[in-house]
Design a protein around this nucleic acid. Sequence first.
DNA 1: CAGTTGAAATGACCGCCGGTCATCTATATA
DNA 2: TATATAGATGACCGGCGGTCATTTCAACTG
Lengths: 222, 222
Amino acid sequence: MSSVVVINQRARSAEQKALRRQEVLRAAESYFQEVGFEAFSMAQLATKTGIAKGTLYLYFKTREEIFLTLYDQSLIRWSSAFIATLSEDMTSNAYAQSLYKTTHTDGVFLPLLIRLEHVIEHNVAIPRLIESKRVFMQQVDAVAKVTSSALALGTAQANEVVKTMGVLLIGATQTDQRPALDNEVLPADVQHLITSFSSEPLFVKNAVRIIESIRAEALSNG
Amino acid sequence: MSSVVVINQRARSAEQKALRRQEVLRAAESYFQEVGFEAFSMAQLATKTGIAKGTLYLYFKTREEIFLTLYDQSLIRWSSAFIATLSEDMTSNAYAQSLYKTTHTDGVFLPLLIRLEHVIEHNVAIPRLIESKRVFMQQVDAVAKVTSSALALGTAQANEVVKTMGVLLIGATQTDQRPALDNEVLPADVQHLITSFSSEPLFVKNAVRIIESIRAEALSNG
DNA sequence: CAGTTGAAATGACCGCCGGTCATCTATATA
DNA sequence: TATATAGATGACCGGCGGTCATTTCAACTG
């Protein structure tokens, strides 16, 4: 028998508190998708959630702890979505394409990922950081395991692939975070430059190069 | 005959104004190295420069225009420093090592590079942005040209190498921007994770993989 | 040399930010 | 019903990027 948990005005039980925390996170995620990282304000989030600003700080120590939690959740979502697209013996290209696509369908994963280490982690308590790193390791392991059979690689090589894909993804994604310059008239040379840094081919091409190299190394090293 | 330009209290001529602008930039660069991106405040910069806050805005439209200008300058510095280390017919490994090293000796280049597209460019006037992109293209061309002879590649391949190195560098560098966790006691597993994401091997290894792939493609495509 | 002028310089001021905490009040319990 | 506990509140804080009416000085004029 599970009883319906309703939060009248105050969350007293641990269950109610967890529920309210989730309410905040749900509001935060939708608000984040609206306005992005820089314009995200705690006062506005409080309004959107329907609680007072001070109350937010009963559930999260800092603004960045909210972002870190959203990141953790989106990482978990992504890893299971990506794993679901993998099958045995894929081409490097298919693998890279799927990785790119799945990371880009989630509205919050990449924007948070690229700000993780140089902004978010700088205003988070150490124990919370450790917790997040554990989530990260767990997800990497899960993805590496399936990668191993998808690309026919050993455990070590599969881990290397996953790790490297992360690095490449961050670099290639940078370019998607540029301000929208649509309906701006740009000189042809600048327009060409921007086009030539389109993230998808940049990522996929180099992902394939790296995967193939790691494959070749695995063969020549036994 | 060049006359010495001294700025008493007011910069009236274009020459004096350019000089004062450089003074601001010099102070900004040293201040940036002290406190980093997030803690960099215009009021403090004004104090360090020895002028009033409002005066800063006579020389730069926004805080981000200062950062963009520092970035442009550091890019130019880096490209000439890197070019100076290149010689004919280098190994991919030597090339990658040198690229890594030269980017990491400048104190402001990488921190600005990784914030370029998702923060800095969002608060800069379009004409200024175009100017900066032109500087970028110019430097990429210069580096690509020397890369072409250093790695014995055609122009197209050399450009591809340079472009891709940038992407990889941003991704691999992310990890250096983590908060300093020295004298924090971390669990062994987390400590191991952090160690395994050390930026130098991450960059160099994959840079070599990519360069070698591009080389191989060049051979097989004629 | 004094008087005039225009632009460089100033800093008080604005709205907003993340975060705090004395105070209030809904709820569980006695 | 009275009391104790703890969740919720929002006025308040210092500091932020950026603005602009006002001040001040260098250069020009006669």
